[in-house]
């Protein structure tokens, strides 16, 4: 691991240098910018010379869009009758060049690891992991909606990052944590961090809230059916409008739907984000819907995050970024849901 000390100007310069040879993305700054042609909503290309500032708290859009694009072209085909390969599906050509995501927070970096539990055998996600270098910023302060420490993360955590940038008083310390991260810093004229910087960083890390999920872990031992039948879902379901806002801004929601699109004889099969909040999600062709009620769908989302996923993989499927808390149209607050679930008899 290599550690460097950077001023703001040096940091900007480093990003600028990267952007000459690679695509570098950062969270869209200020008011939502019109998406650039090749950017997902909420992200923009870095390297335009503007100083890199990362607002407190998680970025508006989560990092999952880079590993789990919306949409992902899975296969392509032709439906032209003249084509001998008519209706033959072929793997879609994929970009393989490295892309750099700058400015994600430790919670998002952790979400990449969590999603990797179900997606460890998914070719597209794995290819995305290989080609995406993540340059994260640790959090100097937690927002009032942040609760990463209670979900097993920490504002100063580096898990999942290739380079972790931490702010000291007037400068930054960049830790190149992985070979991919070291490769990015190689060849750049960077000042190695002094012992005093390392000490200050260690002190920050020691001082910040530590992962503490002891209280939540009691959920793992609870009987599934008791939680499933808890009365709290009724009220939640009544407030919920069943939009997909929470699931689409959530870094750890990973459901997808698959669909074919054909335009003038050229077709592709795509997968795109789906939400268990939508009635169509579980609707059978017969018209039967196992989760036909709003309440059942709301319950499914929270139970998946807090019970089904941990039962299957261990950790909770939530990193405590607080995006859903901020943006839920009807103020369904997962922290309240957790608190209420903990008190279910």
């Amino acid at each position: 691991m290599k550690v460097f000390r950077l001023s703001q100007a040096e940091l900007d310069d480093m990003v600028q240098q990267w952007s000459t040879t690679r695509r570098v993305y950062r969270p869209a700054t200020g008011r939502q910018q019109p998406a650039q042609a090749d950017c997902a909503p909420g992200w923009e290309r870095a390297g335009d010379g503007a100083p890199l500032t990362v607002a407190a708290g998680p970025s508006k859009a989560s990092v999952k869009t880079f590993l789990f694009p919306q949409p992902e072209t899975m296969q392509t085909y032709s439906l032209k009758s003249s084509d001998p390969d008519r209706a033959l599906l072929k793997e879609a050509a994929k970009a393989a060049d490295k892309q750099i995501v700058v400015g994600l927070r430790p919670c998002d970096a952790r979400s990449v690891q969590l999603n990797n539990l179900p997606y460890r055998d998914d070719p597209y996600y794995q290819a995305g992991l290989v080609r995406t270098v993540m340059v994260g910023f640790t959090c100097k302060a937690m927002c009032s909606t942040c609760f990463c420490d209670q979900m097993g993360g920490s504002p100063m955590a580096t898990e999942g990052l290739d380079i972790a940038v931490s702010q000291l008083d007037d400068s930054f310390v960049a830790e190149a944590l992985t070979p991919a991260g070291e490769e990015l810093t190689a060849g750049l004229d960077l000042t190695p961090a002094a012992d005093s910087d390392l000490k200050a960083l260690a002190a920050l890390r020691k001082d910040c809230p530590q992962p503490d999920n002891a209280r939540l872990d009691t959920l793992k031992g609870r009987d599934l059916n008791t939680l499933y039948k808890a009365p709290l879902w009724q009220g939640l379901g009544e407030s919920c409008i069943n939009c997909g806002a929470c699931t689409f801004i959530c870094p750890t929601c990973y459901c997808f739907d698959v669909q074919d699109e054909v335009v003038r004889g050229a077709g592709r099969r795509i997968r795109y984000w789906d939400s268990c909040m939508f009635p169509l999600y579980s609707l059978h062709t017969t018209g039967h819907n196992p989760r036909g009620l709003k309440m059942q769908r709301t319950r499914n989302r929270f139970m998946h995050k807090l019970k089904y996923f941990p039962d299957r993989f261990g950790p909770f499927s939530c990193v405590g970024c607080g995006r859903c808390v901020q943006d839920c149209p009807v103020n369904i607050d997962i922290r309240e849901v957790i608190s209420d679930l903990l008190t279910v008899e």
Partner: peptide, 19 residues
């Protein structure tokens, strides 16, 4: 059992019955 499915590989979550 039958449920709506998309991926068939345990990823897309459409067919979940509880866990």
């Amino acid at each position: 059992l039958e449920n709506r499915m998309k991926c068939g590989e345990g990823l897309c979550c459409h067919c979940n019955v509880g866990p």
